[in-house]
Every structure is written in C-alpha cells, then in structure tokens.
C-alpha cells in the first residue's frame, strides 16, 4: 500500500505541490491524471525519492520512506521511453535489481511480459513496445512495494499504444503489483486504472473510479479535462436547468447538483455522446452539419445550432450518414452536469 500525505514542494517561488495526498491500496492500479505542469511528475519523483518533499510523508507497505534514499524504497520505475540500460542485454536489464545468479527470476519476468527468449538481445534490437515491456519486467523483478509508471506510453505510436497498455495492465494485475500511472492522457487513465486521482495546480481535486470521475466530475474544469464536453451557461431549479438548448434535467446526486428551490446560476456540461442526431423535424432542436470525423468504431459530427455561439460535437455509434451541409435534428439524451457559478 502506498500512502502519501499532505505533500508540499516548491521550486524557488513556484509552489508545485500544495498538500497532496494519495492512497493506493495493495494490488490496486491508480492513475494520477493532470495536465502538464500540474505537479504529477514531481509527486512521482518524491515517492521514488528523486526529490525531497518540503513537508508531508510517504509510506510504502506501512514503512515510512520519506528519509530513505531511492535505493532503499522498493519502488519500481517505468519511465518514459523505457530508458533501458543501452549497454546491457535484455536479461541483464531485467536482472539489474536482482542479486547475482537470479537466472530463474529473470526468465520468469521475461515470460510474464511475453518476451521469453529475448534475453540475449540488446535494447536497440527491440521495438518500442518490447522495450517498454522489458522496462516493466525490470521494475517488477525485485518485487517492489509499488510500481511507478511515468507517461510510459507517450513515446509509442498511437496504434501500438492501446495494445501495450492492455499488456501492461494485464502484467501488473497478474503480478499483483500496486501501481501508480502518471499521465496527462485521460483516455489512458480512465481505460487502465482502478482509481483515478485528478490533479490540478499542485492539488488533487478528485479521486474516484474512472466511471465516477467521468460521470460526476468534481467541478467544471475536471469535467472538461476528463472528457470532451459542451459547456453552456444555465440556470437550474427543481432538478432541471435552463440553457440555450432548452430545459435539460440535471443529474441527481451530482457533486455540484442543485437541491434548492430557488434558481441557481451556473453552467451545464454535456458529453458528446449525449447528443443524438436525427431527421430534422423530429426534434425541437435543429442544426446544420459542419464536419464529420469518422473513427471506425464511432464518428463525431460537428453541428452548428442557431441558438448556440459555438458548434456542438456529437458522438454517434457506427457510421454517421451525414454530410456537411445536411440539416439535422438534435436531441439531448440523459441528464446534464450542472455546476453553480463561482
């Protein structure tokens, strides 16, 4: 179990971490998600022991490690671009953190990441994805208390990325490792982690399951960060909000939902998949298609509505039978997120 409490850190005048706490239970896979510059990498480096926190505590497996150097923390690191030791074979990379003669363990780890038989290769003879898997095997080999993955997929080709992600998640689960993934990529965080901590300006602003973070973001900025959203000024009362798209039900139980009776000023946020497109006339709302982006499994249609200052992006399953210039009906499905002003 990894427990970080109330970590603060400044670099000169810049306050990078302002009291960050993070708890990852044994065997869990957590993601720290935030835009670049939010302090997430600094947090990771503090956990690993590469930076010293100004205040706060870090414990791994119940042992306080704040005063320990990196080599005594039992932390595994999977850095960006794998960072394999270029002068060592794959086997010796994996065995670097093991006592001499741990042949079996090396084989076991290579088997675990699906690279049995690759032990005698040199790192530059491997593909990017293979290198990343070796880096994972290397980090897992000594049986660390926690594995830290620092944007490990950012250097991979997009196509390769999802495959390697699945592999990595699978390996971590099979190894029963406690792991923290640091990333700025919300799709990566939501798809891989058991739990996501959203970080912003040196603070953790929301912790929850991927579904919770996506479905009920803590505030408007989290809402727009963890996924695409159409944001409109609105006034809410009685479980619904009035906005440019009309009156839309507001999600009950939402963190910032509105329980009172008097109208509250704020914003609603709608996800692209909440917009259903249909024949014009069927719906109250109409717009003109500006652009269609086809992704295979789904498509995104950009529609301009007369009552809206900016176009709306709607996500449709399968192929979208629309062309730029088509008039379409727009229907909002489900409840919106509502966030009160200020």
């Amino acid at each position: 179990m990894l427990v970080a409490r109330n970590i603060t850190k400044r670099f000169g005048a810049v306050e990078v971490l302002r009291g960050v706490g993070l708890t990852v239970s044994d065997g869990a896979f957590a993601a720290v998600l935030g835009p670049s510059g939010c302090g997430k990498t600094t947090l990771l480096r503090i956990v690993a022991g590469f930076e010293r926190a100004d205040s706060g505590s870090v414990s791994i497996g119940g042992r306080s490690v704040g005063d320990l150097p990196p080599e005594r923390r039992k932390v595994g690191i999977v850095p960006q671009e794998a960072a394999l030791f270029p002068h060592l074979t794959v086997s010796r990379n994996v065995g670097y953190g093991l006592p001499r003669g741990s042949r079996e363990r090396i084989e076991e780890m290579l088997g675990l990441v699906g690279l049995a038989g690759f032990g005698d290769r040199m790192p530059h003879e491997l593909s990017g994805g293979q290198q990343q898997r070796v880096a994972l095997a290397r980090a897992l080999a000594p049986g660390p208390g926690v594995v830290l993955l620092d944007e490990p997929f950012s250097a991979l080709d997009r196509g390769l990325r999802s495959v390697v992600r699945d592999d990595v998640r699978d390996v971590l689960k099979r190894a029963g490792a406690t792991a923290v993934l640091v990333t700025h990529d919300q799709e990566e965080a939501l798809s891989m982690a058991d739990e996501v901590a959203v970080m912003r300006e040196g603070r953790i602003v929301q912790v929850g399951t991927p579904a919770a973070v996506y479905g009920t973001p803590a505030d408007l900025r989290v809402a727009t960060f963890v996924g695409e959203a159409v944001v409109l000024p609105a006034s809410a009362s009685g479980g619904a909000a009035d906005c440019a798209l009309g009156r839309i039900p507001v999600r009950t139980g939402a963190v910032a939902g509105n329980g009172g009776t008097s109208p509250a000023a704020g914003h609603v946020a709608l996800r692209p998949e909440q917009f259903r497109l249909g024949h014009p006339g069927d719906d109250r709302l109409r717009g003109r298609v500006e652009r269609v982006e086809f992704f295979g499994h789904d498509a995104v249609v950009t529609v301009r509505l007369p009552q809206m200052p900016a176009p709306v992006r709607a996500r449709t399953a399968g192929e979208a039978p629309y062309h730029p210039g088509d008039e379409v009906g727009v229907h909002v499905e489900g409840a919106a997120l509502f966030y009160r002003e200020g």
């Binding site: 022991g49 150097p69 990196p70 690191i77 850095p79 960006q80 670097y96 953190g97 980090a139 000594p142």
Partner: peptide, 17 residues
C-alpha cells in the same frame, strides 16, 4: 550524453550511488 533517468532507474532498483 546519457540521460540521468537511467541512473534514477538504477537507484530505484536498489543500487547504491
């Protein structure tokens, strides 16, 4: 010429400076 992350990884793998 070689990135310091290699040394950090080595440290975290339990090796002394």
């Amino acid at each position: 010429q070689s990135p310091p992350v290699l040394e950090e990884v080595a440290r975290s793998l339990g090796r002394r400076p």
